[in-house]
Design a protein around this nucleic acid. Structure first.
Length: 419
RNA sequence: GUGAGUGUAGCUCAGGUGGUAGAGCCCCGGGUUGUGGCCCCGGUUGUCGUGGGUUCGAGUCCCAUCACUCACCCCA
């Protein structure tokens, strides 16, 4: 049997209502704040991610789905969408169109990792990007929108964690300070941290080894080493959030995995997700557009993991149901012919109608089918109805049925709906 | 890439010490010769993940392999 490949899965009809619910919530919320949807290709030149995400990141180092096309060009299935959206922003000269551009996206991403709870090789994100302003109000307003989105979905007990990772200047100063602190402890650090020391010492804050955590707890905090401009920016972001009455937790150890982040960095953690408890992440990326060959335009954005969001949805969330209004119950070919044309008419007046042409099926089993589909009505066309040119409409909730002429169908349905 | 756990019907799972497969749900039919939901009766469904080995005989033991799950790494 051919099965879906590792880390990829089908989202079946039973589950799709939850997805449509969060997607509709995302669109409605983001558009309320002036964001417009953009759809970029799911594959890009590998070069885009090398330059955008950074060759030192884990994503580029070991998680990309990279392949050569028939002409030998190196392509990569997008592992995230900020770099592609920035690419599109530059390519289409959006800077000239509007000084501040707000974009959102919904779609699949791909990372080659071992699947586990809340982690797939093909997964889905919805996210937003704001280009053109480094004002702290952008950070605060976008975070406020994000929380409005999550609240709309009924998510509770969320934990917003905030930090500033500074700009390249203060980060390199801090890096030196951190290395000076870690130097004496180097012999006792774990193997992973030795590796981190070379690649990105800031990641040592992520270590779970108890001894290392103690070492890191005593380490100088990046927030104490921000330059004046970064410190002021972070202070103003916090001040706006306080004005909104948004609660958050500042954690100087929060570092994001992608190299392009500057200043504001944040995550939202959710309970019940297992080890992968980050529901979403984001931050400011003021150097990205320029790094990709565009104008010096600042940016801010976040990406929400939809699998994790769907898993976190409360059971009480109101989800759309696909139940039909009417199921046609027709026995015999003549009845099916009439049912077909009656169904067409009902659909033209906006009713959901299901017709399964199973002429040999007993009325009993067709009625059971109507019940399983949670239909409001069964429209019965048996031999008797066909012979008399009538039809029987049965309301499944209470079992009351009437036999009427075809001309009375619409008014009967309309009247019944009022009753 | 590393580690642990699990693979038996469409689904959820039983199957001490090896003797050639079962339950519930679902599905189909009937009880009601034209009517759903509850109930009753009957029925279908399996390369026991795959390959090899031990044995007279393997779902059960051994080896390998694959898949899934969870965790590490890292992230959404």
């Amino acid at each position: 049997m051919i099965e879906a490949v590792k880390g990829a899965r089908d989202i079946l009809p039973e589950e799709i209502g939850r997805w449509q619910f969060v997607e509709a919530g995302a669109r409605a919320t983001f558009e309320l704040y002036g964001f417009h949807e953009i759809r970029t290709p799911i594959f890009e030149s590998t070069e885009l991610f090398l330059r955008g995400i950074g060759e030192g990141s884990d994503i580029v180092a070991k998680e990309m789905y990279t392949f050569a096309d028939r002409k030998g060009r190196s392509l990569t299935l997008r592992p995230e969408n900020t770099a592609p959206v920035a690419r599109a922003y530059i390519e289409h000269g959006m800077r000239r169109r509007s000084e501040v551009e707000r974009l959102y996206y919904i779609g699949p991403m791909f990372r080659y990792e071992r699947p586990q709870k809340g982690r797939m090789r093909q997964f889905h994100q919805t996210g937003v990007e704001v280009f053109g302003s480094d004002h702290p109000a952008v950070d605060a307003e976008t975070l406020e929108m994000l929380l409005a989105f999550l609240a709309r979905l009924g998510l509770k007990e969320l934990d917003l964690v905030l930090n500033s990772v500074g700009c390249p200047r203060c980060r390199s100063d801090y890096r030196a300070v951190l290395l000076r602190h870690l130097g004496p402890h180097e012999p006792v650090l774990c193997d992973d941290c030795h590796r981190r020391l070379q690649a990105n010492p800031l990641r040592c804050f992520d270590c779970k080894v108890p001894a290392d955590r103690e070492t890191m707890a005593a380490a100088p905090a990046i927030l104490d080493h921000l330059c004046a401009a970064c410190r002021e920016h972070f202070g103003r972001v916090r001040s706006y959030l306080d004005d909104f009455g948004i609660s958050y937790r500042v954690d100087g150890r929060l570092m994001r995995g992608l190299d392009y982040y500057r200043r504001t960095a944040f995550e939202v953690l959710a309970p019940g997700l297992g080890a992968q408890n980050a529901l979403l992440g984001g931050g400011r990326y003021d150097g990205l557009v320029e790094d990709l060959g565009g104008p010096p335009v600042p940016g801010f954005g976040f990406a929400v993991g939809l699998e994790r969001l769907v898993m976190s949805l409360p059971g009480s969330a109101v989800l759309p149901d696909g139940a039909p209004d009417v199921v046609m119950v027709a026995s015999g070919e003549a009845a099916i012919g009439r049912a077909l044309s009656l169904a067409r008419g009902l659909r033209r007046s906006g009713r959901r109608v299901v017709l399964d042409p199973l002429p040999g099926k007993s009325l009993k089993s067709q009625m059971r089918r109507a019940n399983d589909l949670k239909a409001r009505y069964a429209l019965i066309l048996g031999e008797r109805e066909v012979a008399q040119g009538l039809l029987t409409l049965k309301r499944l909730a209470d079992g009351i049925q009437v036999t009427i002429g075809e001309g009375d169908l619409e008014t009967t349905l309309a009247g019944a709906a009022r009753a």
